[in-house]
Amino acid sequence: MRRPAVRSATFAVQSFLVLSLGMAAPISAQNGHAAHSHDTPAGTPRVGTPSDLSVYNLEGEWLDQTGKAMPLVHLTGRVRIVSMVYTNCAFACPMLVADMKRIEASLPKKSRSEVGFVLISVDPERDTPERLLRFADSSRLDATAWTLLNGADGQILEMGALLGVKVRKMPDGEFAHSNVITILDQAGEIAHQQVGVSQDPGESLEVIRALLR
């Protein structure tokens, strides 16, 4: 039996106090969320539906360095090397990017098309798509392999929470953040993390090689 969906949030909050006295019955409203359709057998991913453990399940709009909308699910299909940085960062971020480029350079040429690199800015206010494009140019990042993303504060908070990357905006406008390079498999699930800057990429490269087999 269907009941009309509740319209007002205030009403909903306050009425629960009353409903909690036993007047409510659970409402099982089907709101037709695409990811929960029961057409397909369990375990078969629908096209565009990230797997259960995929980071690409995060909602929200992201823009890439060309200003184009980049839904996270579009990153599926390639192994992705991801870090969270910002362009005004003096020390750690350039080192993180250098570590990622080291990984890139160590990959055999035939694998290059199967691996992508993602920089997620923790400073969306200053790191507009235009600024990200300039940063990509000045850092000589291959546009066919590198995606730089701009998203809202809430999305960055959630991405940091998922990747275990700690990010905090400081009173002076700089960002304190932990230094982690995450390897996501082709489905967007976390396969490995390289913690710290100037780290030996050996383990990461092994993980990538294993994922590409």
Partner: peptide, 22 residues
């Protein structure tokens, strides 16, 4: 009680519907 009402309105947060990453 409040959380139950929330889950009833948004099956993405039911035990069956929730993604394991969340």
């Amino acid at each position: 009680g409040e959380y139950r009402g929330f889950v009833a309105r948004d099956p993405r947060w039911s035990t069956e519907g929730v993604k394991r990453i969340f």
